[in-house]
Simulated scan of single mutants.
Amino acid sequence: MIKEIIVVEGKDDTVAIKRAVEAETIETGGSAINKDVLKRIRLAQERRGVIVFTDPDHAGERIRKIIAKEVPGCKHAFLTQEAATSRGDIGVENASVEAIREALANVRTDGKRGESAIAWEDLIEAGLIVHPEAASRRLEMGKRLGIGYCNGKQFYNRCRMFQISREEFEAARRHLDEEEGAGS
């Protein structure tokens, strides 16, 4: 049984989580997350810890940001859009048991938003922003680092929030560059 309580968006997500692991969930009821739900998440974080596991789409990111702001110190699990998509629908409920288990095995903790080992210039140099292939490179780097896909600014913020080390960043970049080199 997973000790932490997993925060998901809806009932179908809860069903998918329980199919993959033994865990309890809190459902936000979609992107209209309210004060009562935040209060329950805060209590869960204080007593058992929380893993935020929202859909890899705009609404899921919005919920994740709200929770991270209101309830610091949560863990975060991420699915790729490919792993969460079925017949054009994106959501945790569409992910395979294996994908859910893998995401939960690779949770990231929301650390203190202090100085980061990764600078904005590192993202430019790595071709993650201001580059013709920046979006696809961020997608791959997000997979490798376990922080999901997002725009450049959010990628930088997640590197800070999840305290991605320079070593992790450089290793992921090296693998990405090697893969791209092999594909040419």
Rank of each mutant, 00 (worst) to 15 (best):
I164E: 00
N94E: 09
K112G: 11
L176D: 02
E61Y: 02
A68S: 11
A171W: 06
D122T: 11
N106A: 02
S184D: 09
K112D: 04
R87E: 14
V97K: 14
D57I: 01
A83T: 09
V8P: 00
I129T: 11
E170I: 15
A59W: 14
A68T: 01
E82R: 14
G73L: 02
R174W: 06
F162V: 01
K11P: 00
R47D: 10
E125A: 15
I67M: 03
G183Q: 12
T14W: 07
W120I: 08
A117N: 04
K3P: 12
T85D: 06
G142K: 06
H131A: 15
F78D: 05
A77L: 01
V50A: 08
H76G: 06
Q81D: 01
A172C: 13
A95D: 07
T28Q: 03
G91V: 07
R138E: 05
R166Y: 06
Y149W: 07
R64A: 05
A182R: 09
I51Y: 09
H131D: 15
M141K: 08
A119N: 09
E179D: 15
R144D: 07
G114I: 08
N151D: 14
A119Q: 13
G88M: 11
Y156I: 03
D55R: 00
T25I: 10
T14S: 14
I129Y: 06
Q163T: 04
I2Y: 11
V52M: 06
